[in-house]
Amino acid sequence: MWRLIVNEGDVYWNMGLDEAMLELKRKGLIPNTLRLYIMKPSAVTIGYFQKVVDAVNLSYLEKNEIPFTRRITGGGSVYHDAEGEITYSVVADLDFIPFDLLKSYQFICRGILETLSFLGLKAKFVPINDVVVNGKKISGSAQARRGNAVLQHGTLMYNTNLEVLEKALKAPREKLVDRGVLSLKERVTTISLELHRKVDKKEVIEALKKGFRKAFNVDFEEGGFTKEEISLARKLTGKYSSRRWKFKR
């Protein structure tokens, strides 16, 4: 039986929770968990190895009061729209997750593929870490491992404001040229855009529960955080909100 948690909070708290869960899973103190969460207020996260100046438009973020932080996971910059995106995190051990890195990304992303299938969309996994619909990215994931524990978190854009996304994030020119497109908006999409109707948060959360249940063939029991998780997450929130961590690169 897996634990399922659905919550919302600011980006520092949510990143603190993800890392706390990874640490405590490493110590064998928490069950395998699927967490579905919302960044409130809307926020940006950048990959562990990214340089802030190359990943985001800082002045735009400041002007629009969009907080950002650095993840412990690699990958690129992400805009988490409070009214348009659900972030998932899977915390499990290598008894369940395939050991091979590339296979493990694919394995976990099957949860997103099944979710989209339940919503009536045909999606494809594109290695290393993307899920696309009609050739456009709708979900991206990133993974960290510590000991026997795996944390993979990722986005699912159901109604992200792509105007804001394009202004908030920087994609290296080389990446866009390589894909033969001029702007971010031409290579990303949302569930609402693909279904031609406004999909709401509740519907997406229900689909995510069903999607991961099917992909992992496990049952979920809704639960809360343990005392240790809250305590460790609180400590880590300090790190995620610190200038030193954010501007590491």
Binding site: G47, F49, G74, G75, S77, N129, Q143, A144
Partner: peptide
């Protein structure tokens, strides 16, 4: 030297 980008490295500390 500083390397940066949207790649993944495991373990990150060894990178």
């Amino acid at each position: 030297v500083v390397f940066s980008g949207d790649f993944f490295a495991y373990p990150p500390e060894i990178f």
